[in-house]
């Protein structure tokens, strides 16, 4: 599904070149639930942005679903983001003046799907337990609810891969638990999930945990929960 070879990313900060990602090699198979763990500011968001086709690597190759991403034009990348990927952000990134369902249909606006957008939005909002909040504005919802609207938005085009950048970073523990429950359900449905976090509690809920240090992958192993499950 995801294959990264010798990937590096260099930023030019005030004339000084900073190499944020160094020679990363990584393969994520279809249906995996992967967490990427690193302290803040260690390039994990940059890595996720590249995996999510929002940013391009400085060198190296990235193959997504069999297609080489590093050669794609901007329009193609938009198309990939729209149809194959779903995003969940730390600060939700909902449009404040739009209701829950209007936020959820955003990806549909840029797809070639002409079906009834609201009907679809209601369906997806139901699946994340917000069927009774479709006409609420983001400010009328709790943080956990807002994040669930954001997840519904990520799911509306039925993408194969979900990327989440610190999805629980702004949530209390019970909301975090709800969000992680949803992620596990999505994983159970066969989707590929990549979650970036600095929180070991969140990271350990994935099947596979990748730790990064100084722009390199320092460890890549199955989590205990998985090994425990396997042991049973």
């Amino acid at each position: 599904m995801i294959n990264v070879q010798n990937l590096s990313k260099v930023f030019n900060k005030d004339g000084v070149e900073v190499e944020v990602l160094k020679d990363i090699n990584l393969t994520i198979e279809k249906g995996e639930f992967v967490s990427i763990m690193a302290p803040s500011g260690m390039g994990k968001s940059t890595f996720l942005n590249i995996l999510g086709c929002l940013d391009k690597p400085s060198s190296g190759s990235y193959t997504l679903d069999g297609s080489p991403v590093q050669n794609m034009e901007d329009d193609e990348l938009s198309q990939v983001r729209n149809s194959k990927l779903g995003y969940v952000f730390q600060s939700f990134h909902l449009l404040p003046r739009m209701t829950a369902w209007e936020n959820v249909i955003l990806p549909l606006i840029y797809s070639d799907d002409d079906s009834d957008m609201k009907e679809k939005a209601v369906e997806v909002l139901n699946s994340v337990g917000l069927g009774d909040r479709i006409n609420h504005l983001p400010r009328e919802l709790s943080g956990g609810q807002q994040q669930r609207v954001a997840i519904a938005r990520a799911l509306i085009n039925n993408p194969r891969i979900i990327f989440a950048d610190e999805p629980t970073g702004n949530l209390d523990s019970s909301s975090s638990a709800e969000v992680m429950d949803i992620f596990r359900t999505l994983h159970a449905q066969g989707r590929t999930l990549v979650v970036v976090t600095h929180d070991p509690d969140v990271g350990s809920q994935a099947d596979r945990m990748i730790e990064m240090k100084d722009g390199r992958i320092s460890s890549d192993r199955p989590t205990r929960s998985l090994s425990e499950e396997n042991a049973k």
């Binding site: 929002l54 938009s78 198309q79 983001r81 909902l94 955003l106 990806p107 840029y110």
Partner: peptide
């Protein structure tokens, strides 16, 4: 947000 969910520059 719009770009992230698939809006092209033209959109």
């Amino acid at each position: 947000i719009r770009r992230a969910v698939g809006a092209t520059k033209k959109d």
